[in-house]
Computed example of a mutant assay.
Amino acid sequence: MKLLVPVKRVIDFNVKPRVKADGSGVDLANVKMSMNPFDEIAVEEAIRLKEKDVATEIVAVSIGPAKAQETLRTALAMGADRAILIQTDAEVEPLAVAKLLKKVADEEQPGLVVMGKQAIDDDSNQTGQMLAALLGWAQGTFASKVEVEGDHVSVTREVDGGLETVKLKLPAIVTTDLRLNEPRYASLPNIMKAKSKPLAQKRPEDYGVDIAPRLATVKVTEPAKRQAGVKVGSVDELIAKIKETGVIA
């Protein structure tokens, strides 16, 4: 079975984003970029499935600028077999990403698509669900455990009330949550090997997909600074303080 793993290049999770002076977006100049953490988990899960002889090939795919090759090389160094970069400098919205991934899935015919549940830059949490709808495949979102059994995959997913397990007929879409696994570090020998692994370069036009934005960013602002806390001597004083600040009437 072939696995398709989409990955995204985002601001490193350790970096504090800065908003542009004109409020038009986040400043990406001279900022450390890395693979989206949820996508790292997806790559790790795909590798583990291959190590269990469930999968025979892992194909990583990314949609973004030329520098996204670095993100794909990281996936290859972790253990993916080959990669596809759909190169564009435009900001691609989740629906356009899903349409492009559908075209890739139509070509590659994977048995399972394993992808992060969301990207930490826009937090949309939409692409996996949209891709499942476009392909007409079953989906298991927010996965904390994945087990492939024959032509089905069992996905334990995190829901508000606890855990829910769903059994999906393959091919299917699985989106990964934080507690699914701990991604491995790429070793130096594997980083060197990744340089010789195949990385195909495409453009959105090659797939006939219109990636023109359908949404407009009106303004980006930093969150309000948190006020310092205060100590109170009793419950009555706490209630009075809460009323004073207008939290409750």
Results as ranks from 00 to 15, higher is better:
residue 171 P to M: 04
residue 172 A to P: 03
residue 180 L to T: 00
residue 150 G to A: 11
residue 147 E to R: 13
residue 166 V to R: 04
residue 160 D to M: 11
residue 181 N to V: 01
residue 188 L to E: 07
residue 200 A to H: 14
residue 144 S to F: 12
residue 172 A to K: 02
residue 153 V to G: 01
residue 202 K to Q: 02
residue 182 E to N: 12
residue 151 D to G: 10
residue 159 V to A: 12
residue 152 H to Y: 14
residue 144 S to K: 15
residue 197 K to M: 00
residue 158 E to D: 08
residue 194 A to E: 01
residue 161 G to T: 15
residue 160 D to A: 11
residue 158 E to P: 01
residue 162 G to M: 10
residue 172 A to L: 01
residue 192 M to G: 08
residue 153 V to M: 02
residue 188 L to T: 12
residue 183 P to H: 08
residue 155 V to G: 01
residue 157 R to D: 01
residue 202 K to G: 00
residue 186 A to I: 09
residue 167 K to R: 15
residue 148 V to A: 03
residue 177 D to V: 04
residue 184 R to T: 07
residue 173 I to C: 00
residue 180 L to C: 07
residue 157 R to G: 03
residue 184 R to H: 07
residue 147 E to M: 12
residue 198 P to H: 03
residue 201 Q to L: 14
residue 187 S to R: 15
residue 156 T to Y: 13
residue 162 G to C: 08
residue 190 N to F: 08
residue 164 E to Y: 09
residue 183 P to E: 04
residue 181 N to F: 02
residue 167 K to M: 09
residue 189 P to D: 05
residue 175 T to W: 01
residue 184 R to E: 06
residue 165 T to I: 07
residue 161 G to V: 13
residue 182 E to H: 09
residue 175 T to H: 03
residue 195 K to R: 14
residue 195 K to A: 11
residue 188 L to K: 07
residue 145 K to Q: 14
residue 196 S to F: 11
residue 180 L to V: 08
residue 202 K to R: 15
residue 197 K to V: 00
residue 186 A to N: 07
residue 149 E to I: 10
residue 177 D to G: 06
residue 146 V to P: 02
residue 177 D to T: 06
